[in-house]
Amino acid sequence: MPANAFNGFTEYGVGIGLRVPHYRHILAKKPVVDWFEIISENFMVDGGRPLEVLDSILEQYRVVQHGVAIYFGSADKFNREHLRRLKRLVKYTNTPWLSDHLCWGSVDGRYTHDLLPMPYTFAVARHTAEKIRAARDYLEVPICVENVSSYAEYHASEMTEWEFLSEVVELADCGILLDVNNIYVSSQNHNFDPYDYLNNVPHHRVGQIHIAGHSKFEKYILDTHDHPVLDPVWKMYAHAIKLAGHTATLLEWDDRIPSFDEVHNEALKANKFRDKQLAATTA
């Protein structure tokens, strides 16, 4: 399932996140990269250097928008100014799909700037799906929602996270940005089998996959995005593309960012799993 309605019927290969420490290298050397993922909020500005950089990137590369602050799961209504700016950027980048997280992060107009977990209930799934549908109708672009890594669970939850994700995306008729590292992190923090998660989401809705590194502490794992991808996550990635097909894949590396080449080479390891999977299916 390399291309589907949820990623705008594209086949984008392996990309990396566009990050400030790499700007100079990318603009000067113009390395070959399948695509860049940009953080929408970093470019929802009115002018200046960020938009100049974006213009240069758009001249050379395919760009997909990834957001961190729509907060589909917040009880609050959408911030209309946020959506207006986002739509302006969607038109500017011509992103084939747009992703953001299945989480909440603001209430009563106060922002935590975090990706906070949802209580997994049917009522919350309906509310969240309604907001995703409304956003898609307004933004006029396919939407994929990403599962977040989490460190806490609520008493109020009445289903597993993967059941909640499935419920939301079916109700919203939207795609999934499947973050296999986040599944791994949450599975370790909440004592579930990550393969139960992978096996039980609607694979035909997976429009994009995220991979990343994490950090292990004594009693929990933190989703730090400051390491290479760890082996258990690569194994899960191999399983994910077996189930969903070779899907647009993106490496996230957001802290202690090494050289562009190191990040890109780490991302390109994903191709090894794609080749293996292709060989297995054609054998």
Partner: peptide
């Protein structure tokens, strides 16, 4: 939204209850 310790419903069946939970958590975070 007050200084009192929150007493939250164990079930979240409405947007209002979701907001209550989110207010409680945000107040703790802030």
């Amino acid at each position: 939204g007050t200084n009192s310790s929150p007493q939250l419903p164990r079930k979240i069946n409405s947007r209002a209850q979701l907001r209550d939970l989110q207010r409680a958590m945000a107040n703790a975070l802030f």
